[in-house]
Computed example of a mutant assay.
Amino acid sequence: MFIRLFICLFFLGGGALAQDISPILKFGLFADTQYADCPSENARFYRQALQKLDTCINYFNQQNVQFTINLGDIIDRKNSDLKKIMSSLTHLNNEIYHITGNHDYKEVTDNSVLYRQLNMPSEYYSFKKQNWVFIMLNTNEVSAYANVTGTEKEQELAEMLEQIKQTGGKQAYRWNGGISRKQMKWLDDLLVKCERNHNNVLIFTHHPLYPQSEFTALNNMEILNTISKYPCVKAVFSGHHHAGAFGYYKGIPMITQEGMIETETQNAYSTVEITQDSILVKGRGRVPSRSFKY
Rank of each mutant, 00 (worst) to 15 (best):
D81P: 04
V287C: 04
Y46C: 05
I24R: 11
L25Y: 04
D54P: 03
S180C: 03
V201A: 00
K234T: 07
D76I: 05
K293F: 14
G259Y: 00
H103E: 06
R196Y: 14
F10I: 12
F45T: 09
E41M: 10
V148W: 03
L202Y: 02
N199V: 04
L89V: 08
A146I: 05
K128F: 05
M260T: 01
K26I: 00
A18C: 10
G14Q: 10
L89H: 07
M86L: 15
G13T: 08
E162I: 13
S143T: 02
R181F: 14
L191C: 06
T68K: 02
Y230F: 15
A245Q: 14
A43V: 14
L50M: 04
Q34D: 08
R116E: 15
V148S: 07
Q117I: 04
A245V: 12
E262D: 08
S88M: 10
N102I: 08
G28M: 00
F27I: 03
T271H: 03
T149W: 07
M136C: 05
I69Q: 01
G251W: 10
V113W: 10
K129F: 07
H103V: 12
E154M: 04
E162L: 14
K83T: 15
F2S: 09
L53C: 00
N147S: 13
V272I: 08
E195A: 10
L29V: 04
Y46E: 06
R77E: 13
A158Q: 15
D189G: 11
Q34G: 05
L25N: 05
K52G: 01
S112V: 11
Q166R: 13
K234G: 02
Q163V: 08
M254R: 01
N197V: 05
H241M: 12
G259D: 01
G239W: 00
N119V: 12
K78F: 15
E262G: 00
K165I: 05
T265C: 09
L224I: 08
R44L: 11
L280G: 02
L92E: 01
T68Y: 00
I223L: 09
G244F: 08
G178Y: 10
Y46G: 03
S40A: 15
A49P: 03
L25H: 07
E273Y: 05
Y115H: 03
S80A: 11
L9W: 08
Y97P: 00
F246M: 10
N61G: 05
T167N: 13
Q155P: 05
K129C: 11
V233Y: 00
S238Y: 06
H103F: 06
S80I: 14
V272A: 00
T90W: 04
E214C: 11
Q171M: 11
I179H: 03
D20L: 14
L118F: 04
G13K: 09
N42S: 14
S112M: 14
L202D: 01
T265R: 12
P211G: 09
Y210Q: 06
K52P: 00
E262W: 02
G14W: 07
D104S: 04
D37L: 09
T226Q: 08
D277P: 05
P231A: 07
Q163S: 11
I274G: 01
N267S: 02
C38P: 03
M120A: 10
G168V: 14
C232A: 13
L161T: 12
L187I: 10
K52A: 03
F27S: 01
I75S: 01
